[in-house]
Computed example of a mutant assay.
Amino acid sequence: MSLADLPPLRESLEAHGLFAKKAFGQHFLLDLNITRKIARLAAPLEDVQVIEVGPGPGGLTRALLEAGARVTAVEKDARFLPLLQELAEAADGRLTLIEADALTVDEDALAGGGPFKVISNLPYNVGTPLLIKWLSRPEPPAQMALMFQREVAQRIVARVGEEAYGRLAVISQAVCEAALVMDLPARAFTPPPKVASAVVRLEPRAERPAPALLASLERITAAAFGQRRKMLRSSLKALGGETLCEAAGIAADRRAETIPVSGFLDLAQALLQRD
Rank of each mutant, 00 (worst) to 15 (best):
L3N: 09
D5N: 11
L6T: 09
L9S: 02
L13E: 01
L13W: 00
E14L: 15
A15M: 02
H16T: 00
H16P: 01
G17I: 07
K22S: 12
F24W: 14
Q26G: 09
L29K: 02
L30K: 02
K37G: 05
I38Q: 02
A42E: 04
E46N: 13
V50Y: 04
V53S: 00
G54T: 03
G54L: 00
G56Y: 03
G56P: 09
G59C: 13
G59S: 10
G59E: 05
T61F: 03
A63H: 03
L64R: 02
L65F: 11
A69W: 01
T72E: 08
A78F: 13
R79V: 07
Q85A: 13
Q85N: 15
E86D: 15
L87G: 05
E89I: 00
G93V: 09
R94E: 09
E99L: 13
E99A: 14
A100F: 07
D101F: 14
D101R: 11
L103V: 07
D106V: 05
D106R: 06
D108P: 01
L110P: 06
A111W: 04
G114L: 09
G114P: 06
P115Q: 10
F116T: 00
K117W: 04
L122R: 04
P123W: 00
N125I: 01
N125F: 10
G127I: 01
G127V: 01
L131W: 03
I132D: 03
L135N: 01
S136M: 02
R137C: 14
R137L: 15
R137V: 15
R137F: 07
P138D: 08
Q143W: 01
Q143A: 15
F148H: 10
Q149I: 12
R150N: 08
E151I: 05
Q154R: 15
R155K: 15
V160Q: 09
V160K: 07
E162C: 12
E162T: 09
E177R: 13
A179F: 00
L184P: 01
A186E: 08
T190S: 15
K194S: 13
V195I: 11
A196R: 12
A198N: 04
V199F: 08
E203P: 00
R208I: 03
A210Y: 02
P211D: 11
L213W: 08
L214D: 03
A215P: 01
L217R: 01
F225K: 00
G226F: 05
R229Q: 12
R233E: 11
R233F: 08
S235P: 12
L236Q: 10
L236P: 05
K237W: 07
A238Q: 14
T243R: 13
L244H: 13
E246I: 04
A247L: 10
D253F: 08
R254E: 11
I259Y: 03
P260V: 02
V261R: 00
S262R: 12
G263Q: 05
A268D: 04
A270L: 07
L271M: 11
L272S: 13
R274C: 06
D275M: 03
